[in-house]
Design a protein around this nucleic acid. Structure first.
Length: 549
RNA sequence: GACCCUAUCAUCUAACGGUUAGGAUACGGCCCUCUCAAGGCCGGUACACGGGUUCAAAUCCCGUUAGGGUCGCCA
């Protein structure tokens, strides 16, 4: 390329690569420190896979004493959405995934390698594109998108490998005169990388997760700079990850086939390529097949789904950690009280399988464990925070009944292994509270009698009245239960389960049927947590009122 | 179509040439028990298939099959 051509392509002054390198010197980090990044596109959609990737990268970096940063990949201006950066930043923050450098929720840069938003790095990419042009490793291409479509169709029809390479790379061999002519005519153009690769040769790439990969060399003259002057992903990846000192690139395995190209780019630019770690994306089971969790079809692909349902952030983190390294659950068993972020994530232990199915059953189980370990106060605060955003009337009720609700949440809580595990997400809480509030307690007498069938209404009334007469709110649990037993015995219910089981017809029922009468009258349900505690919290007046039928 | 990756219980996975193929979740049973949940104990279920190599294969090699991915001026 003649200087004249290059000046026509880049008429404005650009920094030289040397100037850029001087501005962004290499990092000074201890041996073994890894530098990773998460590099989402601001599309306004936060995929759960993005959290997975960020978590993995962040852990790997920080556990090695390195750096983790956030880069916004917005080179596709068409897909850019307002508020997307804020969403990304908030999402990461919510899960405790903190970047050392990058962009905050307002889009402000922080860190020595700023700007971290690709659209603001245009000059940098152009400077390197220009140097490639000067070295004869890139060239302008004037093929229109429609021409390329036609070419691709012909290639498909004739069963030729599609792409801009070899004899199909028409603009690769344009003479300087032809290029000048096109440029002077103002023809739109892109910049292509002049590939020296041979598709028949294999490149062995060491992937930290997948192991050795034998990939065909890249021989396609990919576009490195688009018509709008912004780089494509591939070129931006090479430039940014070099300048920002990324040592380990963790990304989805859909990028594997681009690795030869990327390595070529690093070589062409005279840089050392980072180490790659390609992980399989989260999958979804459908009709017996697995497929990638899809933004369009699967609500749970959107991280907001978990916010709406009220899954504790910790639960999701623990679940994802469990997918990253299955040894997490052993670690958790041995370290029940440690922060999940203390778990040592290990590249070598990442499954290299086809991709894990996102499993709600497992998530729920983990979530129950996480919530069971929290104090009633912590649960209350979390539920309140959730409700404030997703259920305002409920939030009001919580605020007005703080101590009362905490007492309720404290039933069978903090008793070690045997703690209640019936809450999987904050959304569940409201339904469990209904019978503690008179205005929400709407079970009718008919409904209660139906649950209690076949016991007669007069039997029910007798049991309720007799219990009501002896119930003392100050009594301890044993006394409380002794009352129930007395009533049971008096009316022909078994108090000894073994006796009842041996000869059920000799009794009207057993003591649990008597308790059930009280339970249903007081709560409208036949399944509740500890009735004694419920009565304690409800208070003697409410208890007796509900028992008077 | 070409190329790449992958293949162990229902699910996530352990195993790195020699194990009664282990764990967790889910499921079933029993115990405990005022119901439920929890907890305790017990249980069933897996090396995709076919060839090799080897004294020995889930593990190594080849093929088949199945699944996933890539082949854009999207990332």
């Amino acid at each position: 390329m003649t200087p004249e051509i290059i000046n026509l392509i880049f008429p404005n002054p650009l920094p030289t690569p040397a100037e850029i390198e001087a501005k962004y010197p290499a990092r000074q980090l201890p041996d073994g420190a890894k530098v990773t990044r998460v590099a989402p596109s601001p599309t306004g959609f936060m995929h759960i896979g993005g959290i997975y990737a960020a978590l993995l990268s962040e852990r790997v970096a920080h556990q090695s004493g390195g750096k983790f940063y956030l880069r916004i990949e917005d080179t596709d201006q068409k897909r850019k959405v307002d508020g997307a950066v804020e969403l990304i930043s908030n999402s990461l923050g919510r899960y405790g995934i903190h970047a050392d450098e990058g962009v905050d929720k307002d889009g402000h840069d922080f860190g020595p390698y700023a700007p971290y938003t690709q659209s603001q790095r245009k000059e940098i990419y152009q400077a390197y594109a220009k140097s490639l042009l000067e070295k004869g490793m890139a060239y302008p291409c004037f093929c229109a998108a429609e021409d390329l479509d036609i070419m691709r169709k012909i290639q498909e029809k004739t069963s030729v490998r599609p792409g801009y390479y070899g004899k199909y790379a028409k603009c690769r061999n344009l003479t300087d005169e032809q290029v000048l002519e096109n440029l002077r005519a103002g023809k739109p153009f892109v910049l292509r990388f002049k590939s020296m690769g041979d598709n028949n040769k294999r490149l062995i790439v060491k992937d930290l997760i997948k192991g050795d990969l034998a990939l065909p060399e890249n021989d396609i003259d990919v576009i490195i700079m688009k018509g709008d002057g912004l780089p494509t992903y591939h070129f931006a990846h090479a430039v940014d990850d070099h300048l920002m000192g990324t040592t380990h690139v963790t990304r989805g395995d859909e990028w594997i086939s681009s690795v030869p190209l990327h390595i070529q780019l690093f070589v062409a630019l005279g840089w050392k390529a980072p180490k790659y770690a390609h992980f399989a994306p989260l999958q979804k089971s459908e009709n017996g097949n697995k497929r990638k969790l899809s933004k369009r079809h699967d609500p749970e692909a959107n991280i907001m789904y978990f916010w709406e349902k009220g899954y504790p952030e910790n639960a999701l983190i623990e679940y994802l950690l469990n997918l990253i390294n299955a040894s997490f659950e052993d670690w958790r068993r041995n370290n029940p009280d440690k922060n999940a972020f203390d778990f040592p994530v290990n590249f070598n232990k990442i499954s290299n399988a086809a991709g894990a199915l996102f499993d709600f059953v497992k998530l729920n189980s983990i979530s129950k464990e996480v919530i069971a370990k929290m104090s009633a106060e912590q649960v209350f605060e979390s539920v309140l925070k959730w409700a404030t955003e997703y259920n305002t009337p409920f939030a009001e009720r919580l605020k007005n009944n703080r101590d009362y609700v905490i007492q309720i949440l404290n039933i069978e809580r903090n008793i070690g292994k045997k703690s209640r595990k019936d809450l999987t997400k904050w959304e569940d809480v409201e339904g469990d509270l209904t019978y503690f509030f008179d205005d929400l307690f709407t079970t009718t007498k008919t409904e209660k009698l139906a649950i209690l069938a076949p016991l007669s209404e007069s039997d029910i009334r007798t049991i309720a009245q007799e219990f009501s007469a002896v119930y003392q709110p100050t009594e301890d649990k044993d006394t409380w239960f002794a009352h129930i037993k007395e009533i049971a015995e008096k009316h022909g219910f078994a108090t000894d389960m073994k006796a009842y089981k041996e000869n059920p017809t000799a009794f009207k029922g057993n003591v649990s049927d008597v308790a059930k009468v009280l339970r249903v009258l007081i709560t409208g349900r036949d399944k509740t947590p500890d009735l004694y505690q419920i009565m304690q919290i409800l208070g003697v007046d409410k208890v007796k009122a509900r028992l008077s039928v």
